[in-house]
């Protein structure tokens, strides 16, 4: 499981304030905390309140790069912000994200190729959020066809089935899980899969448990990566143990520590 830590996001009070006051230490501490807890990569988002996201994303990335060389996920819907981030990023980037809309793909896929970045593709379009598995697969196939035509390596594409809150779209949960499995059979080599996990528990009173249960089930359906709160120890322990059950790493009594140390 490739764990992407979600906590460096301007919508969180401490991060938003640190961006405003340009307090690097808060950002760096949050980066290191997440890595220590098991994050393989860090998602970076200036948040909706940022007045100057182009500069803010560069400042955030530079602050993080001073303390770690883990991959960074540049999280923005604005191609300009993404490009600004790519310019300063020294390591491998993950662009978060493109939708299945052609104009979005036209903007971001060439950037991903130029900067040798990985790309998250959301199975969503201007028409809205897909309502069932077939619509998700159709959008996924569209993204795959587009990137293939441009020569982007499919192994570097992460498809996101769009996870809905369980209390809003309970009937869709099985479709979402099955999409994770079915995305893999659209092409050979197969794309990877990712979810923005926390959305599944939005508005519920058992957030951690819902997150964990969904994640473990998704791993069973073949999920490769998740954007989540790595400081939720139970959640990450569950993800590591799921990988263990699937024989992705070798058991030993300290397997949880071993994973976090890797």
């Amino acid at each position: 499981m490739f764990i992407i830590g979600e906590l460096i996001n301007g919508m969180y009070k401490d991060i938003g304030k640190a961006i405003q006051t340009k307090d690097k230490s808060v950002i760096q501490q949050k980066a290191l905390e997440q890595i220590k807890a098991g994050a393989d990569a860090l998602d970076v988002n200036c948040g909706p309140a940022s007045k100057d996201p182009v500069n803010d994303i560069q400042w955030l990335i530079n602050a993080i790069q001073e303390v770690t060389d883990k991959p960074i996920t540049i999280d923005s819907s604005k191609p300009k912000v993404v490009e600004a981030g790519l310019k300063v990023l020294k390591g491998r980037a993950i662009i978060n994200s493109t939708t299945a809309d052609e104009e979005k793909l036209e903007g971001l896929v060439p950037l991903a190729i130029q900067y040798n970045a990985k790309l998250i593709g959301l199975t969503i379009s201007k028409k809205g959020i897909p309502q069932n598995k077939d619509q998700r697969l159709e959008l996924a196939a569209g993204i795959i066809a587009f990137v293939q035509e441009k020569g982007f390596p499919i192994e570097d594409l992460y498809l996101d089935p769009i996870v809905m809150p369980v209390n809003v779209a309970q009937a869709q949960m099985r479709d979402i899980l099955e999409s994770i499995h079915d995305f893999k059979i659209i092409s050979d080599p197969a794309p990877k899969t990712v979810v923005g996990l926390s959305n599944v528990s939005q508005g519920t009173c058992q957030r951690s448990l819902v997150n964990k249960t969904f994640l473990i089930m998704a791993v069973g359906f073949g999920l490769d990566a998740a954007i989540l709160d790595p400081l939720d120890k139970d959640l990450v322990d569950g993800a590591i143990t799921s990988d263990l059950i699937l024989n992705k790493h070798i058991y030993c009594d300290s397997y949880l520590d071993a994973y976090r140390k890797k």
Partner: peptide, 8 residues
């Protein structure tokens, strides 16, 4: 399993 554990 023990080989890995001992190395840890």
């Amino acid at each position: 399993n023990i080989a890995k554990q001992l190395n840890i």
